[in-house]
Nucleic acid binder design. Structure first.
Lengths: 335, 335
DNA sequence: TGTCTGTATGACAACGATTTCATGGGGAAT
DNA sequence: ATTCCCCATGAAATCGTTGTCATACAGACA
């Protein structure tokens, strides 16, 4: 590998001067600079990032911890975050938990030794903060920027970028109410996910605000997974039991798709017999038939907010400890 | 940060001994080992990965270069590859090209300086090999394992893990033939993607083998993107022009979904009026209605093959230069 | 008892880049 | 002409880890 030493000897200067030319912060004689640049060009020199990271005490990689990269919302987030980071000259390290919480702990233990620039947590788990906080604090003390996307951890001193789950869910319910589609069922993780609970809260509050009761039989708390099969099973079972409902608000587009499939398999028409609203708004929802009405989360905006954090590290203004991205109801065919 | 020096002084030994205890390959007196382990535990020491990487000449990260992480097949691949790597103690660096080829070049320039263990290329672009080969060779010479997933680059000396696109497409066409659904249209990237072209070849060969003509008007070569909107537009236009076809083989599930939406919007029944077969078989296809018949690619098997490469680096048997993963037609409702 | 062998350990160099400290030389000011 | 100052540059230390080389000590055998 061609190193600074090689470049330096080729240009007839010391390694320090080569470094100075690259850094550009210290004055170097124009003639010397030209010689160095020529040598760099000639030898095809590229600074070794690992050595830089060691010397600087931290590298140029940001870890993104996702719940399930196969879900549209996380894939979209990963895409946009990577794009943002790339513009900042940073790399993205992907850790997909796949709904196994032990992996998170394992990662957080290893994290401080990886020389990361930052960690972006975006997992739907209700994390056991009592246990996690010391780990996170240790990481933060070692100069690693930690931030949370989707889940509000600002109370723990962690910069959080969240979407308005309560408002989004309420808007969806209001929309369904406006069409007279009652009763409305809810499906999602409630007990085991802070995000799911927020969406449930929005659903519940909106129902109550419209003078509607919350029927426990129409609240389907799935224990794990936000995937379509969970929605299918929940809706199938409800239909088999003969429960009556005219609409379903799902905590993810995947869940909504599964519910719709269950309805379709029983010969029910969407949205006339039952209407469906999902959460996410990323991916195939535009082209499914019926296309999916959904509470759209702006993953691009979330990614930009993530980018802002790292931009601010380089001298820009420090962003707020908590940033809320609005959720927007996108009305399509399914409701 | 707590370093070997700190551990060494706490245990009353030299840094070298601490390193020896960690490596475990050199004999260390039992009593000394115990003291060192106690010190490690006491101080919460974790070896600095960056320093290790510098010293070793390469790190423990593998880069995955994807075409579009929002597409089911790539997301699934990323998930499984990350899982495999995690089991090997390796980290995944994600580079999403998002169909911008210049990003690939930029990445390959930077790659050698990142201290990567390997690079997994999985982008549908027909890469300009004339230009790329020197870069790839340079990376390979610096000890980085380079391999290609989906695209066969074994002719360029790059270990390739491919799926049987030709066979998969042929099986799909044969299935449609068996149902008497002719003529069959094809949609995908043909000119600008080696993978798309392979699928087209399978389609063409199967048609000819069944004594059917290949109608150029029913071959829709989309210039960019494998996403649903491209399929929607292609199919809409064909239907608007009054072209007659009874089935569509699409080079991705997303394209197929777009085509199906176009058909649905014209009041056509699936599969009775037109049948659809996609490619990929990952994600929502099971729960869309009609559910999607598709040529399923086993991303898990591909990821395991990737894992095998890196396992073989650690002394295992060297795997073949080219490995073919079978594609399997999964028949559901759409065809 | 002396030499030999082998094992356990320490000192030191090296990976590649950056930064601090020191120095030489040229120009300006008196 | 002499002194002063600043600019450009080089030498050397440093980040944390690991491998090489050297050494000290214990046990064995003649």
């Amino acid at each position: 590998m061609v190193s600074v030493v090689a470049v330096a000897s080729h240009a007839g200067v010391s390694p320090a001067t080569v470094s100075r030319v690259l850094a550009g912060r210290v004055p170097v004689a124009a003639e010397t600079r030209a010689r160095v640049l020529e040598a760099i060009e000639h030898l095809g020199y590229r600074p070794n990032e690992v050595a830089r990271s060691l010397r600087a005490g931290r590298g140029r990689a940001v870890a993104l911890v996702t719940g399930d990269i196969e879900q549209g919302i996380y894939a979209s987030l990963a895409k946009h975050v990577q794009s943002e980071l790339e513009a900042l000259g940073l790399d993205l390290l992907l850790f997909n938990l796949g709904h196994r919480e032990d992996r998170l702990r394992h990662f957080l233990e290893r994290a401080p030794s990886l020389g990361l620039r930052g960690i972006v947590l975006s997992s739907p788990h209700v994390m056991d903060m009592v246990e996690l906080t010391p780990v996170i604090r240790a990481a933060a003390e070692s100069g690693v920027e930690i931030l949370s996307v989707s889940q509000d951890l600002s109370a723990f001193g962690i910069t959080s970028i969240v979407h308005d789950d309560v408002g989004g869910a309420a808007a969806a319910v209001a929309h369904l109410m406006g069409q007279g589609r009652t009763p409305v069922a809810f499906v999602g993780r409630i007990e085991t996910s802070a995000i799911g609970r927020a969406r449930f809260n929005g659903y519940r509050d909106a129902l109550l605000a419209h003078g509607q009761p919350v029927d426990p039989a129409l609240v389907w708390d799935i224990s794990e997974g936000y995937r379509a099969d969970a929605g299918y099973h929940a809706a199938s079972e409800a239909l088999a039991r003969g429960l009556r409902f005219r609409a379903v608000l799902a905590a993810s587009d995947e869940l909504a798709l599964g519910c719709m499939a269950a309805a379709a398999d029983r010969g029910l028409a969407v949205p006339d017999d039952i209407a469906f609203v999902g959460f996410g708004g990323l991916g195939w929802g535009v082209f499914s038939r019926p296309s999916m009405t959904t509470v759209s989360l702006d993953s691009d905006a979330m990614a930009r907010a993530v980018g802002d954090i790292f931009r601010s590290q380089e001298g820009g203004p420090a962003p707020a400890n908590r940033r809320v991205i609005q959720a927007k109801l996108v009305v399509r065919q399914s409701a």
